[in-house]
């Protein structure tokens, strides 16, 4: 399947990534090669096959709603790129 520049740009936007102009051709080529390779899956008739998202026969795992100790605010903020007054700080979102 041939991939266009527009498709790559759209996926990059969804992924919050920028593709530099000088790398675009390489991305298109690699993407096309990959999709061409995985097209092998289309050879298989999977009409009545159930998908396996997970190998274990697990449903929801519940636990009692008990208060347990958790990270202190200080520890939770220790790796924050930017913080202020005990909060994570991000660029202004609302004008």
């Amino acid at each position: 399947m041939k991939i266009t520049k527009q498709t790559v740009e759209n996926v990059a936007m969804l992924s919050r990534l920028n593709i530099a102009d000088n790398k675009m051709d390489k991305y298109i080529e690699e993407f096309s090669n990959f999709l061409e390779y995985v097209d092998v899956l289309q050879q298989v008739n999977t009409e009545n096959i159930k998908p396996t998202a997970h190998v274990l026969p697990l449903q929801n795992v519940f636990r009692e709603d008990i208060v347990k100790s958790s990270l202190s605010r200080e520890a939770a903020l220790a790796n924050a790129p930017e913080q202020e007054d005990g909060y994570f700080k991000v660029p202004r979102i609302i004008e």
């Binding site: 995985v38 899956l41 298989v44 999977t46 096959i49 159930k50 998908p51 396996t52 998202a53």
Partner: peptide
């Protein structure tokens, strides 16, 4: 792609 891959995973 994704759903097809999950079905192949079953197989």
């Amino acid at each position: 792609y994704y759903l097809k891959a999950l079905k192949l995973r079953t197989l």
